[in-house]
Computed example of a mutant assay.
Amino acid sequence: MAYFRKIKSKTTKKGYTWGFTMDVGIDPVTGKRKQTSRRGFTTKSEAEAAYHALKGQLYKGINLESSDVLFKDVVEEWLKVYKQSVKVSTLHSQKSKINHLLRYFGNLKLKNIKRPMYQQMLNDFHKKGYARNTISGIHATANLIFKRAIELELIHQSPAAFAKLPKERKTVEDLETKQDNIRFLEKAELMEFLKLAKTNGLYLDYQLFATLSYTGMRVGEALALKWSDIDFENSTISITKTLFHPSNHGTKYQLLTPKTHGSIRTIFIDEFIQTILKKHKVQQSEYKLMAGTDYVNQNFLFANANGHPITGKLVGDRMRRLLKKSSITKEISPHCLRHTHTSLLIEAGAGIKEIQEVLGHSDIKTTMNIYAHLTKDLKEKTSHKFSQLMKGLSEKL
């Protein structure tokens, strides 16, 4: 809504100028209607032209003047654009980062957020013990938001520019006790784990953990598999999607495109996995008959008793249950089975390019980093085995 009016003026020959007042939304703090005014136009036509120009800006998302805009309003404006170009899983991961920023700056006017204030926020996160990766993620999100504010000409410079991420201070003890993120099971450990899954596992444990171990696919990729993705005649599995289960609620999930374009791939499965999956298909058919109309048949491989895909959280819970019954003392997650498969590929003599294709890495650097770590670990074990083998001989020399 807008209205135009004549405004008295002593500086013009006509004795008046034209102006207008228009609504620009609702104030997020007070809940009251917000308005903006423009004046000083010689004719009503000029005022109308200015009104339509400003209205055009509003439709593009600029709904407040730069002197009034709050940080949280810019976040909202940024999200409108951002969510159109990313997957829902990526958007979901941004929520906690946004919440951190809103706790500091939400109700502040954008123009009042200065560089020292922004730097202090990062320092506070560090003092509270936030991981460097977490702080870096928050900082990256803030940069995107302030970049949007600059595009909208609400500010000229970003408060996040030139900010320094606090350095982690590591003691000698930290370095000595640091656990590497790339963990995997040895062949004997994997055999023990899969045997437990077969004899002591619950429904789907053996089928799922064997598939993860023998294919190296991500958990989300496995949970998204449908029977139409399995080609028993050609011994292949097509990976074209991943399961997004943000709340770990049985029926609230989405099928999304894989992590990267390189993740869309076809992998070969050996006779062992084929046999397991064929038996599983028969067993699943029996569950469908027992459930009757309660079974929601969406053709998922790893579906619960009602036909919905199982959650990632359940997979983790099931793995911890089995590990407690085993002699394995390592901290192992379902993702570690992907690393386990990689280590077995390396031991079998597979090259980096082959491993990249199996794992679905779009960037070979990712494969090389994992390869380098696992190769080093395997070499150390080989050296140790050789030392043990030669120990008896050495003692006689």
Score class of each variant (00 low, 15 high):
residue 2 A to E: 08
residue 4 F to I: 06
residue 5 R to N: 09
residue 5 R to I: 10
residue 5 R to F: 12
residue 9 S to L: 05
residue 15 G to C: 06
residue 16 Y to N: 07
residue 20 F to T: 00
residue 21 T to A: 05
residue 28 P to H: 09
residue 29 V to I: 09
residue 46 E to C: 07
residue 47 A to Y: 07
residue 48 E to Q: 14
residue 50 A to S: 12
residue 51 Y to M: 03
residue 53 A to S: 12
residue 53 A to P: 10
residue 54 L to Q: 10
residue 54 L to H: 09
residue 57 Q to R: 15
residue 58 L to N: 13
residue 59 Y to V: 15
residue 60 K to Q: 15
residue 60 K to S: 11
residue 71 F to V: 04
residue 80 K to H: 10
residue 82 Y to P: 05
residue 88 V to A: 14
residue 91 L to H: 07
residue 98 I to G: 00
residue 101 L to W: 03
residue 104 Y to F: 15
residue 107 N to Y: 12
residue 108 L to K: 15
residue 110 L to V: 10
residue 114 K to Q: 09
residue 118 Y to R: 04
residue 122 L to Q: 04
residue 126 H to G: 02
residue 126 H to L: 14
residue 129 G to K: 06
residue 129 G to F: 05
residue 132 R to H: 15
residue 132 R to A: 14
residue 135 I to F: 00
residue 137 G to M: 09
residue 137 G to Y: 08
residue 138 I to H: 01
residue 140 A to L: 08
residue 142 A to C: 10
residue 142 A to E: 00
residue 144 L to H: 11
residue 147 K to S: 04
residue 148 R to H: 13
residue 150 I to S: 06
residue 163 A to N: 09
residue 163 A to F: 08
residue 164 K to T: 12
residue 164 K to Y: 10
residue 165 L to G: 05
residue 171 T to A: 02
residue 172 V to Y: 12
residue 174 D to W: 07
residue 174 D to K: 03
residue 175 L to W: 06
residue 178 K to W: 09
residue 179 Q to T: 11
residue 183 R to M: 02
residue 186 E to D: 13
residue 191 M to I: 15
residue 194 L to G: 01
residue 194 L to K: 01
residue 201 G to T: 10
residue 203 Y to D: 11
residue 208 L to P: 00
residue 213 S to R: 02
residue 232 F to R: 04
residue 234 N to P: 10
residue 235 S to V: 11
residue 235 S to L: 14
residue 236 T to H: 03
residue 243 L to I: 00
residue 249 H to G: 12
residue 251 T to H: 12
residue 252 K to S: 13
residue 255 L to Q: 10
residue 258 P to N: 01
residue 258 P to E: 00
residue 259 K to M: 05
residue 264 I to K: 13
residue 275 T to A: 14
residue 275 T to Q: 13
residue 275 T to E: 14
residue 276 I to W: 07
residue 278 K to H: 00
residue 279 K to H: 12
residue 280 H to K: 04
residue 282 V to H: 08
residue 284 Q to T: 00
residue 284 Q to G: 07
residue 286 E to N: 12
residue 289 L to N: 09
residue 292 G to M: 06
residue 295 Y to L: 02
residue 298 Q to L: 13
residue 298 Q to S: 05
residue 299 N to F: 11
residue 301 L to T: 04
residue 301 L to G: 00
residue 305 A to Y: 10
residue 307 G to V: 07
residue 314 L to C: 06
residue 314 L to D: 06
residue 316 G to E: 09
residue 317 D to A: 11
residue 322 L to K: 01
residue 322 L to W: 02
residue 326 S to T: 09
residue 328 I to W: 08
residue 328 I to V: 07
residue 330 K to Y: 09
residue 330 K to P: 01
residue 332 I to Q: 05
residue 333 S to Y: 15
residue 333 S to H: 15
residue 336 C to S: 06
residue 342 T to M: 09
residue 343 S to N: 02
residue 343 S to L: 00
residue 344 L to N: 08
residue 345 L to M: 02
residue 345 L to V: 01
residue 350 A to Q: 04
residue 351 G to R: 14
residue 351 G to F: 13
residue 356 Q to L: 01
residue 356 Q to V: 03
residue 359 L to R: 03
residue 360 G to C: 02
residue 361 H to I: 03
residue 362 S to W: 01
residue 366 T to V: 04
residue 367 T to P: 03
residue 367 T to Y: 03
residue 369 N to P: 04
residue 372 A to K: 04
residue 374 L to G: 03
residue 377 D to M: 15
residue 383 S to G: 09
residue 384 H to L: 14
residue 385 K to H: 11
residue 387 S to A: 14
residue 390 M to G: 07
residue 392 G to W: 06
